[in-house]
Amino acid sequence: MIIEQTYQVRGGDFAHAGDASSKVKKLLKQLDVDPRKIKSIVIALYEAEVNIVAHAWEGIIRILIDRDHIRMVLEDKGPGIADIEQAMVEGYSTASREVREMGFGAGMGLSNIKRNTDQMEITSRVGEGTVLTMVNYF
């Protein structure tokens, strides 16, 4: 069983932030994945989705569900991350004032992702974009 899904995400489009995560959540429920695993996957995916909305210009989410795991690849065109190690520090954020006022940009996103994934990898080019790969086993 291999299921592939692709979702487009637009930078700044907070009205639809979380739509892709919501669809993946429903899909995993239909596939009867352990609810505790779904919870972790949804936390990580939502944070990653919001990161594209809050920081990038546009992005694409590719989901690949295999028998025993899910692979989520989020590729965006955006400013990139100059110092990934620093971005990983809990509490560090480069979010705008508007984004912070909405309750985002607390510098918790990447640590939430790390805490809720089995594998996580970030590669980034400043001025071009970022690729985040997350894998969770069922």
Partner: peptide, 16 residues
């Protein structure tokens, strides 16, 4: 319990 009033609150509430 929150003072945030925008729709992302419901997205989070639903996902959780």
């Amino acid at each position: 319990v929150t003072l945030q009033t925008h729709q992302n609150v419901m997205a989070v509430a639903s996902l959780k």
